[in-house]
Simulated assay, not measured.
Amino acid sequence: MKLKQSLIVALILSIIGLTSWELFWRSQGYYPTLDDNKDLWAVQRAKLKTLTNQDVVLTGSSRVLFDIQLDAWEEETKKRPLQLASVGSSPLPIFHDIVETTDFAGTIIVGVTPTLFFSTTYPLADPWRRTQIRADFHHERTYAQRLNHHLSIPLQNSLAFMINYEERGYADEINLRGLLQKVKIGNRIKNDFPAFHDFGDIDLDRNMKMREKTVTDTAFANSIIRVWGWYATAFPPPDKASTMPFFVKDAKKFMARGGNLILLRCPSTGGFRMGENAVSPRKDYWDELVAQTKAKAYHFEDYEQLKYLDCPEWSHLSVKDANYFTKELVKIMKADGALSHSKTN
């Protein structure tokens, strides 16, 4: 009897404690949201084996993730693309994995963010490692890992205190690691990395939308801009000598089997665009990449309806502008015949 009473008391205290913890974090402005981790990515990657040559796969860095809205794309084409872009990373490992391990010969759109696309082929460097980990995980994940992911989704969608990012660095983490980093102890060496807040919400099919706060709160947007400034000083110079031939080789192999490759340069503005112009000028990087691959290519600066779009934090589009960008881009591609790929294997 005493054991039963103890169990009931423990259960009640646990419920009170978890409820109080959840209410506290919600009072701080947090809300339930999905983590764009390797599990979420792998679920989408697994769908590639069911696609036909009429389908579209999106790859690239965070600009493709934010700027291409899946609902808007489907509205214009009647087909929903597969979103495989990944934040803060090089798209080369993912494209290479698709070329080497599948026979997919539909359309692949590769986003070119110069600082990441041309960053490195060194396997331990962050831009490469982040996407290589995801590609490897897709092939190696166990049934236990798949089950664990599916069981975690209802919790992530329901509880704000479940926020726990796969990648380190976000200031919004609600876990022991994140909370300890906020504790100031004596003269402990301060991390000079500025507070980096998550500014997007992602759905199960990895459709990413910029949080409205990024558009309406200038201070919040500036906090993200400071992170881009930090990376500008910390990132090594582009390694075009290795990245260009690596990608071109895969591009030619993909197109040789009938694949439709499209290169896409999404908008950037402000200091970010100035930095890109200085470090990776268009004629030496984008233009040369297009010339070597001979792929269809779309650069936002080449179109009046796209070239003046503004990025609230210099690198990604708001939901409103992302929907507009997606629809206009589809119209441009359709007029150019870029999406009329119908070749069979």
Score class of each variant (00 low, 15 high):
residue 19 T to I: 11
residue 270 G to L: 02
residue 220 F to H: 00
residue 248 V to Q: 06
residue 208 M to R: 09
residue 19 T to E: 08
residue 130 R to M: 09
residue 137 F to V: 04
residue 244 M to D: 05
residue 8 I to Y: 09
residue 20 S to M: 15
residue 111 G to E: 05
residue 238 P to E: 06
residue 345 N to S: 14
residue 152 S to I: 06
residue 228 W to R: 15
residue 70 L to W: 00
residue 56 V to F: 08
residue 329 L to I: 09
residue 77 T to K: 02
residue 335 A to K: 13
residue 283 K to N: 11
residue 122 Y to K: 14
residue 286 W to D: 00
residue 339 L to E: 03
residue 29 G to N: 03
residue 118 F to H: 04
residue 248 V to T: 09
residue 179 L to W: 15
residue 344 T to G: 10
residue 256 A to L: 05
residue 153 I to D: 01
residue 265 R to Q: 09
residue 109 I to F: 02
residue 183 V to D: 00
residue 268 S to V: 14
residue 276 E to Q: 15
residue 25 W to Y: 12
residue 35 D to N: 15
residue 270 G to E: 06
residue 25 W to N: 07
residue 71 D to F: 02
residue 158 S to L: 12
residue 93 P to E: 04
residue 295 A to K: 01
residue 178 G to N: 08
residue 189 I to V: 14
residue 258 G to Q: 03
residue 138 H to Q: 10
residue 13 L to S: 15
residue 189 I to S: 14
residue 325 F to A: 06
residue 107 T to A: 07
residue 308 Y to G: 08
residue 220 F to R: 00
residue 20 S to G: 11
residue 35 D to G: 03
residue 123 P to E: 09
residue 128 W to M: 08
residue 100 E to W: 04
residue 185 I to M: 10
residue 66 F to Q: 08
residue 223 S to G: 03
residue 9 V to N: 02
residue 90 S to T: 09
residue 140 E to I: 11
residue 155 L to Y: 14
residue 252 K to G: 08
residue 46 A to E: 15
residue 211 R to K: 12
residue 44 Q to H: 07
residue 33 T to Q: 13
residue 169 G to S: 06
residue 262 I to L: 03
residue 145 Q to S: 06
residue 271 G to A: 14
residue 5 Q to L: 15
residue 157 N to P: 06
residue 272 F to P: 05
residue 182 K to G: 02
residue 87 V to F: 13
residue 244 M to R: 02
residue 175 N to Q: 07
residue 125 A to S: 14
residue 47 K to T: 08
residue 132 Q to L: 13
residue 107 T to Q: 07
residue 80 R to I: 06
residue 188 R to I: 15
residue 20 S to P: 00
residue 209 K to L: 12
residue 337 G to I: 07
residue 135 A to W: 03
residue 150 H to I: 13
residue 243 T to L: 02
residue 104 F to Y: 11
residue 207 N to W: 01
residue 212 E to W: 07
residue 285 Y to Q: 02
residue 113 T to A: 11
residue 35 D to C: 10
residue 135 A to F: 07
residue 26 R to A: 00
residue 99 V to E: 04
residue 59 T to C: 09
residue 317 L to T: 05
residue 147 L to W: 11
residue 1 M to P: 09
residue 14 S to R: 07
residue 187 N to G: 13
residue 304 E to F: 12
residue 124 L to F: 12
residue 244 M to S: 00
residue 312 P to R: 01
residue 82 L to R: 01
residue 260 N to Y: 00
residue 97 D to M: 08
residue 155 L to R: 10
residue 51 L to P: 01
residue 331 K to T: 11
residue 171 A to G: 04
residue 165 Y to W: 13
residue 113 T to Y: 13
residue 218 T to A: 15
residue 341 H to D: 03
residue 160 A to V: 03
residue 291 A to F: 03
residue 253 K to G: 00
residue 212 E to P: 04
residue 231 Y to P: 09
residue 229 G to V: 08
residue 243 T to F: 10
residue 311 C to E: 03
residue 244 M to Y: 08
residue 308 Y to V: 09
residue 90 S to P: 07
residue 96 H to I: 02
residue 236 P to C: 02
residue 178 G to L: 08
residue 55 D to Q: 06
residue 260 N to I: 00
residue 18 L to W: 15
residue 217 D to S: 01
residue 202 I to W: 06
residue 315 S to D: 12
residue 253 K to H: 09
residue 7 L to F: 14
residue 23 L to A: 11
residue 29 G to M: 01
residue 127 P to Y: 04
